[in-house]
Amino acid sequence: MAATECDALVIGGGPAGLMAADTLLSAGRRVILAEQRPSLARKFLMAGKSGLNLTKDEDTETCLAAYGEAAGTLAPMIRAFPPAAVTRWAEELGQPLFTGTTGRVFPTAMKASPLLRAWLARLAGLGLDARTRWAWRGWAGADTLFDTPDGPVRLAPSVTVLALGGASWARLGSDGAWAGILEATGAPVVPFAPANAGLRVDWSAHMAAHFGAPLKNVALGAGGRTTRGEIVIARTGLEGGALYPLSPELRENAALAIDLAPDVAPETLAARIAARPSRESASNRLRKAARLSPAARALVLECARPLPRDPQSVARLLKAVPVPHAGLAPLDEAISTAGGLAWPGLSPGLEIAARPGVFAAGEMLDWEAPTGGYLITACLATGLWAGRHAAET
């Protein structure tokens, strides 16, 4: 079968792939975008069902710090498309935005579909040729192979951008199957691991009454890192935004401790406990002296029985409740993934050294970040960066 020549090929129809296609089209390149699912940006739409957190209203350097070890490598890309640029981009697509109390930026519509429709309309106007249900199968020499509803297809693109996602939410198309194809070419790939994932805890039966209950205004510590916010007691363990930044430490099986009264000094807490009648039950003492919610009291009794009797020891316990756990939730249940294409195998322009003329973007790359707009920001920024460098090829 002879291959069909094409100018520029983008494989993957999520935010990184769409941004790469936008950039290539804007540079005058003719673009075919191939997506294995029946429609584009499925994970993007799913993420936006409960409010699409596009970015964080903060300066570029503060934003970069959220990317941890990858911050230095991502720096030129994030600086080229920082949070302020993400905001302008969405507004230029006709989407009004607002900033929440934590600095997170959302579309006023609180969902992804209006933004995606406006973006796809723009891309169609630029001439994007989108092919859905095209499953990438790798290469045969210079040809790029696809399985399509009309049978096998071969393309011979001048330049390619891969934006195939990580390995979470496989049902939406981000299955990580590309890793084996690229490893076979000699591209180094860091094994995938869950990021922004729930924590597995083997609860006893008495915790069932509290499944779905929030633990508000708590501080969490693991492996020397601390976070603060809200988590939720789930059937399988713990979930929530305050937990997710600790994914790197919890992946290494670091112990988790929860401060249930982060605004109260241990001495003050101990004094309140000491003032309660000695005959009072442990649960009532926690409720009245420590002012803990039913869910918080249940957590203490679940994880720290038998409770100490002296007020100082109880206070210390409430400031660091140890939560035995079985590690992070499985990869496919994670919001995002760590691992992917290793940076040493990429050029500064995100070209894959083992496959010249092929660039990569988005969650395929070996970076991770907490929720809060950082995931989409980096996907857009790396898509733009790869698209710019591919356009010059």
Rank of each mutant, 00 (worst) to 15 (best):
E5C: 05
C6A: 10
A8E: 03
I11P: 08
G14A: 13
G17C: 06
M19P: 00
D22C: 01
L24P: 03
A27R: 02
R29I: 03
R30H: 13
V31H: 02
L33Q: 06
Q36A: 13
S39R: 15
A41C: 12
F44Y: 14
L45A: 12
G48L: 12
N53W: 09
T55I: 07
T55K: 10
T62G: 08
C63P: 02
L64I: 09
E69H: 13
A70R: 04
A71W: 06
L74N: 00
L74P: 00
R79G: 02
F81K: 04
F81T: 03
P83T: 01
V86W: 03
V86K: 01
V86A: 13
W89N: 00
A90V: 14
R104T: 05
V105R: 11
P107T: 12
K111D: 12
P114C: 05
G125Q: 11
G127E: 10
L128I: 15
R133G: 01
W136T: 02
W136C: 03
G138T: 05
T148C: 09
T148D: 08
D150C: 06
R154G: 01
V161H: 06
S168P: 00
L172V: 12
L172C: 11
G173L: 06
G176C: 08
A177G: 14
A179E: 11
A184I: 04
G186C: 11
A187F: 00
P188Q: 10
P188C: 10
V189W: 08
A193Y: 07
A193V: 06
G198C: 09
R200M: 12
V201I: 15
V201P: 05
S204I: 00
M207E: 10
A209D: 13
F211L: 07
A219G: 13
G221W: 04
G221M: 12
R228H: 12
R228M: 08
E230Q: 14
I231Y: 07
R235N: 10
R235Q: 15
T236P: 00
G241W: 02
L243I: 05
S247P: 10
E249M: 13
L250M: 08
R251K: 02
E252C: 12
N253R: 15
A255W: 01
I258D: 04
L260M: 11
A261N: 15
A261L: 11
A261C: 15
V264T: 15
A265F: 07
A265Y: 03
T268D: 14
R276G: 09
P277I: 10
S281F: 11
S283V: 12
R285S: 00
L286W: 03
A290P: 09
R291D: 12
P294I: 10
L299K: 11
C303K: 08
R305Y: 12
P308Q: 07
D310G: 02
Q312E: 15
R316V: 00
R316Q: 14
A326W: 03
A334V: 05
S336K: 03
S336A: 15
A338W: 02
A338M: 05
A342W: 10
P348V: 01
R355K: 15
R355V: 11
R355Q: 13
G357I: 02
F359Y: 15
F359C: 03
A361Y: 02
M364I: 07
W367L: 10
E368H: 07
G373N: 01
T377C: 09
C379F: 05
T382M: 06
G383R: 05
G383A: 10
W385T: 02
G387M: 02
R388V: 01
H389I: 01
A390V: 02
A391G: 09
